[in-house]
Design a binder for these strands. Structure first.
Ligand SMILES: NC(=O)c1ccc[n+]([C@@H]2O[C@H](COP(=O)([O-])OP(=O)(O)OC[C@H]3O[C@@H](n4cnc5c(N)ncnc54)[C@H](O)[C@@H]3O)[C@@H](O)[C@H]2O)c1
Ligand SMILES: NC(=O)c1ccc[n+]([C@@H]2O[C@H](COP(=O)([O-])OP(=O)(O)OC[C@H]3O[C@@H](n4cnc5c(N)ncnc54)[C@H](O)[C@@H]3O)[C@@H](O)[C@H]2O)c1
Lengths: 256, 256
DNA sequence: CGCGATTTGTGCACGTCTTCACAAGCGCCT
DNA sequence: AGGCGCTTGTGAAGACGTGCACAAATCGCG
């Protein structure tokens, strides 16, 4: 039933290329730093301070420094970080030095948008294949890629090394698709269908659920409305909101 | 604690839902419970145990009980939770008892998919208006809604009470759109553009960034590849992966 | 060469989140 | 009625994440 942790890890003798073992929270922020760094590089900056990069990425500068310190010491005290070097390091840690192939299953409403999105290629990913179960959609060409039938998945996966599978089918089909992806060796899945997926150990699933995001926003709307309606403290109850909303990922403003 | 007959007997006159001040991590999970509960209700279940609901939602049962305990005591020991009652309570806490209106700005590739998505209406949201800056797109009708020019935002917002703004424009336009949304009184924004938004205090921003999700998956792929390549601990290194990946939100398998 | 200005890297304290473990409560069966 | 099995709700402990504050390191300049 429940998984037990191993308190003492088996001997970690070899410290060869510093298998980093980053905190998950840090991993989740590295892509943001990377985007900010690319923006800075494009605008001609060669170095950047933790304060500057933290601003560009929308985080606390101490947090940013701690995050980066987990990768090693790539900054220079009194100067800051070399933008190009830091990009290189983060991309290396994230495994973006090779272009990863993505298979997209479910070329419907959402799948079409994803297939036509150019933001993948610019960030180290390549959509390698499109799949759908609807015969009417099979054969359609999107962005130079032909939609194949989902039954061909194993054949196509054998030709190309698929790194990540994206599921954009209705929820009722998602588990079956996940099983098929796992069967052809995919160990990372991004799921847009609103359902939980069961996958074997060693397979990572991340999900994106629109409605959940909206409902979280709804909660805060509701709370804000309750506060302003309450007669307790007068009008300016809003300014009494706690600044730090942590948890999943909520930005709260910082003006200048 | 459990008052089935006379709700709100003790204490003050108004049987107010007590403004619970939930932990953010809990708020982020309530929508998942809600979805699981709706599925259970559709399949005829009248009650469900914490174990059963936790399974359906893909979380630990202790965590689920603690989350629900923050809303009050709506379970019955030895029996479980009443599905219908729990749905009602969670929807009440999330502010979903009223249908919230959403304004979508940027009806391009992604915006089209969002506008045509029926998963909003079924979960308590209504797309109230579509906006774009491109004159070629203004006037187009999607799902019975006409795309308006973004300059009309303030006029339309005056007619309808917009609860949430969704930004699906290119990144370079996102900040300006956010400013316009804030200007017409929107205090909750869902941002699909890959950039950080500056908004005044009291405005909540949540973002959805595809590339970030893929890059996080890429990191784990990279790590798994390193592990299997390492001769240190033999072949079955994968099975030694820690079960609990917490942080943002990664499901890891539980088969059977 | 030394000094001050600047910025990194991190020890530490604090808050949040997770998980275990178990008493209290509930319904059913005898 | 009483006991028994099942389930909730929660205290406590530990893991994890955050942010302050400061020593150590570096650069530029007189
Ligand atoms: N459209 C959106 O904006 C949006 C937003 C958030 C979430 N989602 C979710 O994303 C998923 C897709 O949404 P959509 O609007 O594109 O739906 P859609 O119905 O337009 O597209 C689904 C596609 O999946 C295909 N499909 C069905 N079963 C399949 C299978 N077994 N194998 C392969 N392909 C299969 C269908 O043929 C169809 O083309 C849904 O789960 C939806 O809830 C969509
Ligand atoms: N397409 C995807 O699958 C996808 C996935 C992830 C993220 N995104 C992000 O979502 C955003 C939209 O992507 P897209 O593929 O739909 O781009 P798109 O270019 O197809 O659509 C953008 C739309 O926004 C409109 N627009 C531009 N400036 C505007 C303004 N100031 N006010 C109102 N409307 C304006 C444009 O006219 C266009 O219709 C981008 O930031 C993109 O990075 C897209």
């Amino acid at each position: 039933m429940s998984q037990h942790r191993h308190p003492g890890a088996p001997g970690r003798a070899g410290a060869v290329p510093t298998l980093p073992d980053l905190p998950e929270a840090t991993v989740a922020r590295l892509p943001e730093y990377l985007r900010a760094l690319h923006n800075l590089a494009d605008s001609g900056h060669e170095t950047v301070s933790s304060e500057g990069l933290a601003n560009a990425a929308g985080v606390n500068s101490a947090k940013l420094r701690k995050d980066l310190s987990h990768l090693g010491s790539y900054g220079t005290r009194g100067v800051g970080y070399d933008v190009a070097l830091l990009i290189e390091q983060i991309e290396s840690v994230l495994g973006l030095t090779q272009c990863r192939s993505v298979a997209l299953v479910g070329v419907g409403n959402l799948g079409h948008a994803l297939a036509g999105y150019d933001g993948f290629a610019t960030r180290g990913f390549r959509i390698a294949a499109l799949f759908d179960a609807d015969p009417a959609r099979v054969g359609e060409e999107i962005n130079g890629l032909v939609v194949r039938h989902v039954d061909e998945l194993s054949r196509v996966a054998a030709e190309q090394l698929i790194s990540i599978g994206v599921i954009a089918t209705p929820a009722r089909a998602a588990q079956a698709v996940a099983d098929q992806l796992v069967a052809v060796g995919v160990t990372s899945i991004l799921n847009f269908a609103p359902c939980v997926l069961s996958v074997p150990e060693g397979v990572d699933v991340r999900k994106v659920d629109l409605a959940i995001e909206l409902q979280i926003l709804s909660f805060h709307e509701h709370r804000k409305a309750s506060l302003t309606a309450l007669p307790g403290t007068a009008g300016s109850a809003l300014t009494a909101l706690p600044g730090g909303l942590a948890a999943t990922d909520t930005q709260e403003a910082i003006g200048t």
